[in-house]
């Protein structure tokens, strides 16, 4: 189950194009665009993969839904944005462990 394919050709291509073009632009853009672009790419991957995921469907769907409002409020609530990223990392650790059947 861990090697289930969850993205289409088009979805992969779109995210690759997004990441490469974003990388080419970021050196001349505000520093907070970096995390924003990476989270946007993560959001697109989560949204695309969630429906086909066998192991992490709910996790991916939830993360995709969470990222959008957090991105939009990152300037008005930088502390909340920072906290969201930290909590997302903790959630990813818990999800990674759960997928392997490990308690953390």
């Amino acid at each position: 189950m861990d090697d289930t394919l969850v993205l289409s050709e088009a979805e992969v291509f779109d995210v690759v194009a997004f990441l490469v073009t974003a990388a080419s632009l970021l050196p001349e853009e505000p520093v907070d665009y970096g995390p924003a672009r990476l989270l946007t790419a993560a959001q697109r991957l989560c949204a695309a993969a969630a429906s086909r995921s066998e192991l992490s469907r709910d996790f991916l769907r939830h993360l995709a839904e969470e990222i959008v409002p957090r991105l939009n409020s990152r300037n008005s609530d930088p502390a909340g944005f920072r906290a969201f990223m930290d909590e997302s990392c903790r959630a990813i650790a818990r999800e990674a462990a759960r997928r392997l059947g490990r308690e953390v």
Partner: peptide, 8 residues
């Protein structure tokens, strides 16, 4: 849109 990271 594919090459425009700023287009949501």
């Amino acid at each position: 849109r594919t090459v425009t990271p700023g287009m949501a």
